[in-house]
Amino acid sequence: MSLRPYEVMAAQRLLPVLRSSDADEAVRATEALLAAGCRAVELTTSTPGWAGAVSRTAALTDALGRPALIGVGTVTTAAQAGAALDAGAGFLVSPYPAPEVREVAGRRGAAFVEGGFTPGEIAAAVRCAGAAKVFPAHVGGPAFLRSLRAVLPDAFLIPTGGIAPGDIGDWLAAGASAVGIGSGLPADPAELAALFATLAAPGPYGER
């Protein structure tokens, strides 16, 4: 399995998670994020018509002309996983342990960020795919993530849930590989672009 999706998310540091009212809104929001310097965006199965939104955005490029990396979150069944990958998703995300999704991702060579909260759940997800979504992250806070990082030093960890944009630095300092943000991102295009520019990690994966 290629680790490229994880590398893109690590370079971006902030992973927007879109829960939109419909597919058109999801597409518009994704286009705005890509124009602001974002490359990886997570759509969710809670959005009506989400598969169509994935198909419409997977072929887009970011502000630097690089292919967009469109993922699908809240994937909890094999059917959803298959539909997401068929639509062009570059990675899958679940909110909790999802063996059915894990099986589909493994069979199709797809990147999968499996959700978990307890150390056991997170360690199991990391053993399977090298990555885990720490959810709901706000319950444990950065101190909890720091403790997880101490025993999982090489894991790709994305804390998500209840995190405000202003707190991203604290989570990165605690050991987050990237931080999932579902709300509170700036609406102003210039402010949004400035946020991504500030967070973007230099180095080969950032292609800066």
Results as ranks from 00 to 15, higher is better:
Ser2Ile: 01
Leu3Cys: 12
Pro5Ile: 05
Ala11Tyr: 05
Ala11His: 02
Ala11Thr: 12
Gln12Thr: 00
Leu14Arg: 00
Val17Asp: 02
Arg19Ser: 13
Ser20Pro: 13
Asp22Ala: 10
Glu25Ile: 09
Ala26Pro: 04
Thr30Tyr: 10
Leu33Thr: 07
Leu34Pro: 14
Leu34Val: 11
Gly37Lys: 07
Arg39Tyr: 08
Ala40Met: 06
Glu42Val: 01
Leu43Asp: 09
Thr45Ile: 09
Gly49Pro: 12
Gly49Ile: 05
Gly49Asp: 05
Ala58His: 05
Pro67Ile: 03
Pro67Arg: 02
Ala68Asp: 06
Ala68Lys: 00
Gly71Leu: 02
Gly71Gln: 07
Gly73Trp: 00
Thr74Leu: 14
Val75Ala: 14
Val75Tyr: 15
Thr76Gln: 14
Gly82Lys: 00
Ala83Val: 09
Leu85Trp: 03
Asp86Thr: 01
Ala89Pro: 07
Phe91Asn: 02
Gly106Tyr: 02
Arg108Glu: 04
Gly109Tyr: 01
Ala111Ile: 03
Ala111Asn: 12
Phe112Gln: 09
Gly116Asn: 11
Phe117Ala: 01
Phe117Lys: 03
Gly120Ser: 15
Ala124Glu: 11
Ala132Trp: 01
Val134Cys: 14
Ala137Thr: 02
Val139Lys: 08
Gly141Leu: 09
Phe144Val: 04
Arg149Pro: 10
Ala150Thr: 04
Val151Ala: 14
Leu152Arg: 06
Leu157Asn: 03
Gly162Asp: 05
Ile163Asp: 09
Ala164Arg: 15
Pro165Gln: 00
Gly166Arg: 07
Ile168Ser: 10
Asp170His: 13
Leu172Tyr: 06
Ala173Tyr: 05
Ser177Ala: 15
Pro186Glu: 07
Ala187Gln: 15
Asp188Gly: 11
Ala190Cys: 09
Ala190Tyr: 10
Ala193Asn: 01
Ala194His: 04
Leu195Met: 12
Phe196Ile: 10
Leu199Trp: 14
Pro202Met: 13
Pro204Gly: 08
